[in-house]
Amino acid sequence: MSSYLTALPALVRGLGTTFAVALASMALAVAFGFIAGTLRSVLPKALDLPLLGIIEFLRGIPLLVLMYFLFFGLPQLGIHTTNNAAAIAALALYAGALGSEIVRGAIVSIPMGQTEAAAALGLGTFSILRLVVIPQAIRRMLPPFVALFALIVESSSLAALIDVTDLLQAARQNVERDPDIALPIYLTVLVAYFIVNYPVSLASQRLEKKLA
């Protein structure tokens, strides 16, 4: 079991990388989500269609394929990335597409009466959004965004497959060196992900109830 113990520091470092990747992706996803979601809520159908197409594409393509394309495929077209960048980019694009649906859904759920009252006061479209609709919509976005973070953390494990030294990759490397520690190592990894995600998932559910 000593090789298990020597592996632990690497696992902890890997967990740190997992967090870094997840947080970076989340930040970008929220940004993309806000921009795309807000745009979609105001664009006329003709202009909305291409945006919808992109979002449906990002939601339909498996994350792994997207990640591999960004890391292995882009260099062929002259665009070189690091594995960290490719992983974060893939996660951000995928989660951003989901985020745009969260944002759009929340904005659309604010009763028309609010928009009408604001318009009657003479406010323009973006002012209405900025001052009246979005502040109210933010409350409704919170629970699904918290759940999205858990999904990002979970999905970030795919980064290991393009050699990002996250928690899973650290585990894989150590198991390769000593296959007999596969059981304790992977169990530890499962428990670590659980310890991170379960509270986040609970928080999302509790927020949902509180803000309903």
Partner: peptide
């Protein structure tokens, strides 16, 4: 449901 399917597969 709170642990990554990839890790479950490896396990």
């Amino acid at each position: 449901r709170n642990t990554p399917p990839l890790v479950q597969i490896y396990f």
